[in-house]
Computed example of a mutant assay.
Amino acid sequence: MKIISWNLRHSRGAEIGHIQALVHEHRPDLLLMQEVTAEIDGAAERFGGYYARCALPGRKHGLAAWSPHPFHRPTQNLALQRGLIVRRICQLLEFDGYTIANVHLSHGQMLNRLQLRRIAAVLSPRAAILGDCNMVGAPFLPGFQDVGGRQPTHRSVGLFPLRLDRCFVRGLRCLGAEVLAPGASDHHPLLVSLER
């Protein structure tokens, strides 16, 4: 299963045309997006497939998933521990025998690890967590392997390049991982191939 995760950088970043170009070039089985606004909701009508978005509580942007194949079940949301400003959720996608979690975690380095543990506790034994983890260093997530690309995925003004976008797996095998060109966002898309 080929999965791409990309933080679009809401209101100033990637637009639906950029997403369509990414899908056309890499043909993922699943595209997970963070910082997605309602402007992206026409994705399925524009280039086919299936799409589900959930806004963060009290925000215009949130998490979304697109696939050329129907989702096995409707996506679900999991409330996470609240940060100082933003209330966070996780988007859960159930497949036949495994679960994928789409995340945009808090910036606090202790809080985002607690959020990861909450997510891990509800996932099936075979699972993957992908997205913008806002995490520097080891995740300290028992049972999961960090299999995403090792190159920096985010470049912000005045900061060193950081590897914030991650993929953690449990009970699945990673066949390859690659950090793609950033395009219109300040985040690079992360491409991983997982054996189902």
Rank of each mutant, 00 (worst) to 15 (best):
S67W: 07
L164N: 05
A55Q: 15
N7K: 05
F144C: 14
L141Q: 05
E178A: 01
A21W: 00
H18F: 01
F160I: 03
R53E: 11
G17W: 00
S193Q: 13
A52G: 13
A64S: 11
L164Y: 07
E25W: 01
S185F: 02
L111T: 05
R173E: 13
I3G: 06
Q115T: 02
E45W: 04
G171V: 03
N102S: 13
E45G: 13
L31T: 09
H187Y: 05
N102W: 09
T37Q: 14
A52M: 14
D186G: 02
F71M: 08
G108T: 05
T153V: 02
A121Q: 15
L84Y: 07
V147L: 10
L116F: 03
R59A: 11
L31S: 14
L141V: 09
E35F: 06
T99W: 14
I4L: 12
V122Q: 11
E25Y: 01
N77R: 14
H69T: 06
D165W: 03
H26C: 06
L159S: 07
A38C: 00
M33W: 07
A120D: 10
L164Q: 04
L130K: 09
L63A: 00
G49V: 05
S67T: 01
P152W: 00
P161C: 05
G83K: 04
D41Q: 11
F160H: 07
R73M: 07
V169N: 08
P152K: 00
F144L: 13
H188S: 07
V36I: 10
H26N: 11
L31P: 12
D96G: 08
R170M: 07
H188E: 00
H69I: 02
